Computed example of a mutant assay.
Amino acid sequence: MHRISYLLTDGFQVLSLATQAVFEFANIAAQEPFYTVEHFSLTGGTVRSSLGLALDTQPLEAPRLADTWIIVGVTNPLPTQSSPQTLEFLRRAQAHARRTVGICTGAFILAEAGLLAGRRATTHWAYAHEMQRRYPDVSVEPDRIYIVDGAIWTSAGMTAGLDLALGLVEKDLGADIARSVARKLVMHHYRSGGQSQHSEMLQLAPKSDRIQRALEHARKHLSHPLSVEELAEVVNLSPRQFSRVFSAETGQSPAKAIEGLRLEAARLMIEQSRHSLDVVARETGFRDRRHMREVFLRGFGIPPQAVRRDARTPPRS
Rank of each mutant, 00 (worst) to 15 (best):
E38K: 11
A66V: 03
D56P: 00
T68Q: 06
V47Q: 04
L65G: 05
V74D: 09
V72N: 04
I71Q: 12
V47D: 03
W69G: 02
L55K: 08
L65F: 12
S41M: 08
L65N: 13
D56K: 01
I70S: 05
N76I: 08
D67P: 05
P59V: 04
V72E: 01
P63W: 14
A62T: 10
E61N: 11
L53T: 11
L53P: 00
L42T: 15
G52I: 01
T43L: 12
A66T: 07
E61A: 13
Q58L: 13
L53V: 12
T46P: 00
G45M: 08
P63H: 14
V74A: 12
N76L: 10
G45D: 09
E38L: 08
L65V: 12
D56I: 01
D67S: 07
V74P: 06
W69K: 08
A66H: 03
F40K: 04
G52C: 06
V47P: 04
I70V: 15
N76W: 10
G45A: 09
G73N: 12
D67W: 06
R64M: 12
G44K: 07
L51H: 08
T68R: 05
A62R: 10
N76M: 10
A54V: 00
A62S: 10
E61Q: 14
T68C: 09
V74I: 14
S41I: 06
P59L: 02
V47H: 07
D67R: 07
L51N: 07
L51P: 01
L42Y: 11
A66N: 02
T75P: 03
L53Y: 09
T75G: 12
H39L: 15
Q58S: 12
T57Y: 05
Q58C: 08
G73V: 10
A54W: 01
F40S: 02
A54F: 00
T46C: 01
S41W: 06
P63I: 12
A66P: 02
T46Y: 00
V74N: 10
D67Q: 06
L53G: 01
S41R: 07
T43P: 02
T57D: 02
V37F: 12
S41K: 08
T46N: 04
V37Y: 11
I70Y: 06
V72A: 07
S41Y: 07
G73S: 13
P59Y: 05
W69S: 05
P63F: 14
T43M: 11
L60T: 01
V37H: 14
V47T: 09
S49A: 08
N76E: 15
H39F: 15
T68P: 00
S49G: 11
A54H: 00
E38T: 14
S50L: 09
L55C: 10
A66L: 02
A54G: 01
V72G: 01
I70D: 05
A62V: 09
T46I: 11
S41D: 08
R48A: 07
R64C: 13
F40W: 13
L55D: 03
V37N: 13
W69F: 14
E61Y: 10
I71F: 10
T57I: 03
D56W: 04
